[in-house]
């Protein structure tokens, strides 16, 4: 899975030089060896070990400290760039370096390359944070819906499964809040970036996408209660009590359950 991700990154790289840091968190020796061996051929790829108890925020903050580039791309190892990803990272970079832009995300499809996994995150009336059009087919929501995925869009947040941000902006807000453990930290990061004047953007690039094979990695995982508390405390500050999400307010759409 990790090697598929790295190989795909080199198959569809951005125009700029990249440095790839693979952060191993308590991986098995065999798995780690396989990855080290597999990325041997990439001179600008390093495998680093962060063998502390799992904390998504700490791992990424630590990884960001080790990175030498100007722009960070946090990318889950269960993602894979494909033919339809070509040029997407360049589109994201162009957006990320704009002065008033913070986190930049993109369209992620599930492993079947049909169903939407992520196209921006919105705050939901009576709920929490939700991925826009999650589980809908791309054909359904590409166009002709309230928030067509074919267009770039200002959003409340983007997922850290594929999140790009300039390192200076990331550092300015202190990176991910390490009191979060598993989830919610990405939305919180975007909200804090926004508070500093750096808005989150969903970059479409004409519906280019990356695959996110999340269902094979998230099953059985437990979300600690602290994540819910921290999320609420963060989200409530970005929430509009009249309209809900400030950028993707609720609109009735036929056949839709998510918007």
């Amino acid at each position: 899975m990790t090697l598929d991700c790295v190989n795909s990154l080199y198959s569809y790289p951005p125009e700029n030089n990249i440095e790839v840091l693979l952060i191993s968190n308590n991986s098995s020796k065999e798995e780690l060896q396989k990855v080290v061996h597999g990325v041997d051929r990439y001179s600008n790829t390093k495998v680093l070990e962060y063998n502390n108890p799992f904390n998504f925020q700490k791992i990424n903050n630590w990884g960001a400290e080790q990175a030498t580039g100007r722009i960070l791309l946090f990318l889950n190892n269960d993602t894979e760039l494909v033919k339809q990803s070509r040029g997407l990272l360049d589109d994201m970079i162009k957006k990320a370096i704009e002065e008033e832009v913070g986190a930049v995300g993109c369209l992620l499809l599930y492993g079947d390359a049909r169903h939407v996994q992520h196209a921006g995150v919105r705050l939901v009336s009576g709920g929490g944070a939700e991925h826009l059009y999650i589980h809908r087919t791309l054909d359904d929501v590409k166009e002709g819906v309230a928030y067509p995925l074919v267009k770039d869009r200002r959003v409340t947040a983007v997922t850290a499964a594929a999140l790009m941000v300039e390192k200076s902006k990331f550092k300015k807000v202190g990176g991910f809040d390490e009191e979060f453990i598993v989830c919610g930290g990405d939305v919180d990061l975007c909200i804090r970036l926004n508070d500093k004047g750096y808005g989150a953007w969903y970059v479409s690039g004409g519906c280019k996408y990356i695959l996110h094979k999340e269902s094979t990695t998230r099953s059985g995982s437990k979300i600690p209660y602290i994540d819910y508390l921290k999320s609420y405390e963060s989200y409530i500050n970005a929430y509009d009590f009249k309209t809900g999400d400030k950028f993707l307010p609720f609109k009735h759409e036929r056949g839709s359950i998510n918007v």
Binding site: V124, S125, G126, G128, Y228, Y232, Y235, F241, K242, G244
Partner: peptide, 12 residues
């Protein structure tokens, strides 16, 4: 069993 806090419904 803990209670998960959710955002209030709009207009509530």
């Amino acid at each position: 069993t803990p209670i998960k806090p959710m955002l209030p419904a709009t207009g509530r």
